[in-house]
Design a binder for these strands. Structure first.
Lengths: 174, 174
DNA sequence: GAAATATTGTTTGTATGCAAATGATTTTGC
DNA sequence: GCAAAATCATTTGCATACAAACAATATTTC
């Protein structure tokens, strides 16, 4: 099942803004007012919408991903295969937009499934260099169709031209 | 400090796609190929971008929010004040796009700060009806300027017209 | 070359977020 | 009216995610 809390239909449900009438009244009466309760509609705020959109994407991802990978796990594995030169754990995490603490957990789970492996760096004794395994490559190959479908499904409500437009704008917000 | 992992500058860093050349070679040679490794650029995928954009928003939120509220906590408190009729914990959570388990924690933290209070529902003995307290209303009033600035800051890279465009598209992805 | 600084990886604590299971209660279907 | 289904709230387990602190090692600065 997708989820127990469909945000879409419910969001527009309780849009009543009881404070607004009060605000108008104050304004009409010439009473000093902060004006801060007006013109703030939660359903129109970027952060609120980004959270819901990302949640929907994750739901689609977990539905359609057959390889048992989460979005960060897939991104990490994919980035590791892309890497031309040996890469450390922290550096890989940064390429995926994760901090060191988060990366630690993601890498541990990929390691436990033997999708990646570690080697001690000879030059820098702090570093563990990461490598993707054959099993990791095979899993990636196997799920590429899934992840393409997931991107498709996430953008499905938009027309092709709108998708490109949306992605272009979204990139600039990062 | 904003965060220890600036995704922006780093993302475009390791774009090398070693597999592509191999794919091209196979194609040229007429070897059957799955074509699944081609044309997938992680930095162009909605889910990847949504995650990073939401992370950036959260960083801005925690920087500029003076009231010690997280995004879900603010949304929950704001929605509770909006509510015209008495509302149960689960119902409030759904209005904010949170499942019951998540809502439990958020509500607990708002309760511990006395920003909301509970009453046992007389009619339905399973329900706890939630109410915002005076302290909760005061805090909301106090942070409205913050959250408006946060929305502004999140959309700052876009021109005014682009912001409206982006929000319209984003809404359709929920 | 020694001191200051930075980086790598780890750990702990806190906060979402979902799945799945549970018990209590209410509503629905017949 | 009664069994089945749904709902409310809770709990447990797992997976991001960030802040802050830490030890070990490298690099920079002078």
């Amino acid at each position: 099942m997708v989820g127990s809390c469909p945000p879409v239909a419910i969001i527009a449900l309780t849009r009543g803004k009881p404070m607004l009438q009060f605000g108008m009244m104050l304004k009409t009466l010439g009473v000093p007012m902060t004006d801060q309760n007006e013109s703030y509609i939660l359903d129109d705020q970027v952060g609120f919408l980004l959270r819901l959109a990302y949640q929907r994407h994750i739901a689609l991802f977990m539905e359609q991903m057959t390889g048992g990978l989460t979005p960060p796990q897939f991104s990490t594995l994919y980035r590791l295969r892309e890497a031309v030169e040996p890469i450390s754990q922290n550096a890989l995490g940064r390429l995926v937009g994760m901090d060191a603490a988060t990366t630690k957990g993601v890498v541990a789970r990929l390691l436990s499934r033997d999708l990646i492996r570690v080697e001690k760096d000879g030059g820098d004794r702090r570093r563990y260099t990461l490598f993707i395994t054959d099993a990791g490559r095979q899993l990636l190959d196997a799920v590429m169709a899934d992840v393409k479908g997931i991107s498709e499904a996430t953008l499905e409500p938009l027309a092709p031209q709108e998708r490109a437009q949306f992605l272009a704008l979204l990139k600039r917000l990062i």
